[in-house]
């Protein structure tokens, strides 16, 4: 049996760990509520732009734009959104697994695809495996603003326009509730499937449809990327919160168990001492 002091020091160290995990849990909770908020305030914008894009794109058949055209796919781009750090449960590995799976299923040679990595964990993983990383962004703000994301999404959309890749997928974690989020792979370019909203107004275009599409479509694609980042951030904090909560719970359980063992050992020791004293006294008589 471990000595009293050994058990005691294990209890103290577990307690300290649990304090840290508890603090991290609270930090994640605070961040989550803010991330949820920004995801929520993004919804009206997204809905509106989707509405406009689908009615413009479906309302006019003569409109053509490079971003609407399906071209033969020589190279595929993947945007993968992960966290900058670990300690968030299975959040990072789920996204990475999904992309690995997609690459294995769809490609034979590494020349057929390129990766845009947002977040350190994803970047490091795919860099280590020697994949072709087109662009990487790390150290994003905890609650990114549209302006911050703008340069990234513009570059991503720009690489589609200049032919670096012929289709673009977005792999991210879709946030539903605190306990439910799932990894999603979404094709964002070329823009093909529009959810029809039913409100098909025939618009006038000022100055003309090409001009409009030139502004509208990149903005739409950028919004999709921004939305995915917001959703991923919320999922990241939710996973972090759950992971840290579990860690704290486990630590508490361990402390309980150790305390029990400590008390037993202490009792044993006392009993032994009494026995020794009693038998010592008996020997003197």
């Amino acid at each position: 049996m471990a000595s009293l002091r050994e058990i005691k020091s294990r209890i103290t160290s577990t307690q300290k760990t649990s304090q840290i995990t508890k603090a991290m849990e609270m930090v994640s909770t605070a961040k989550l509520s803010k991330a949820e908020q920004s995801a929520k305030s993004f919804v009206p914008y997204m809905e509106k732009i989707q509405d406009v894009v689908s009615s413009v794109a479906s309302g006019t058949t003569e409109a053509t734009h490079p971003m609407l055209e399906q071209r033969p796919v020589k190279k595929t781009g993947y945007i993968i959104i992960t966290a900058d750090r670990g300690l968030v449960g299975a959040y990072n590995s789920n996204v990475i697994r999904k992309l690995n799976q997609m690459i294995q299923e769809r490609h034979k040679s590494p020349d057929e695809y390129g990766i845009i990595a947002i977040g350190r964990v994803g970047r490091d993983h795919f860099k280590k495996l020697g994949h072709n990383i087109l662009l990487d962004i790390i150290g994003l703000h905890d609650h990114p603003t549209y302006e911050e994301i703008n340069t990234i999404s513009r570059q991503a959309v720009g690489m589609y326009s200049d032919g670096t890749y012929d289709e673009l997928y977005l792999i991210y974690t879709n946030y539903k509730t605190i306990i439910s989020h799932e990894v999603v792979a979404k094709k964002i370019l070329p823009l093909t499937d529009f959810e029809s909203t039913g409100s098909n107004l025939s618009y006038e275009f000022e100055p003309n449809i090409e001009e409009i599409l030139n502004v509208l479509l990149p903005q739409y694609a950028e919004s999709l990327i921004f939305g995915a980042i917001l959703s991923s951030k919320a999922s990241e904090y939710a996973s972090g919160m759950t992971a840290m909560k579990n860690a704290t719970d486990n630590a508490m359980e361990l402390i309980d168990e150790l305390t029990l063992r400590y008390n037993r050992a202490r009792q044993d020791k006392i009993t032994q001492e009494i026995t020794e004293i009693v038998s010592g006294a008996a020997a003197l008589e």
């Binding site: 025939s202 618009y203 006038e204 275009f205 000022e206 409009i212 502004v215």
Partner: peptide
């Protein structure tokens, strides 16, 4: 201010999209 110039809109305007 649209890219093609200033634009005024009142109730009952035709559906329009402009950058």
């Amino acid at each position: 201010k649209a890219t093609s110039g200033e634009l005024g809109v009142m109730a009952g305007h035709v559906p329009l999209v402009a950058p």
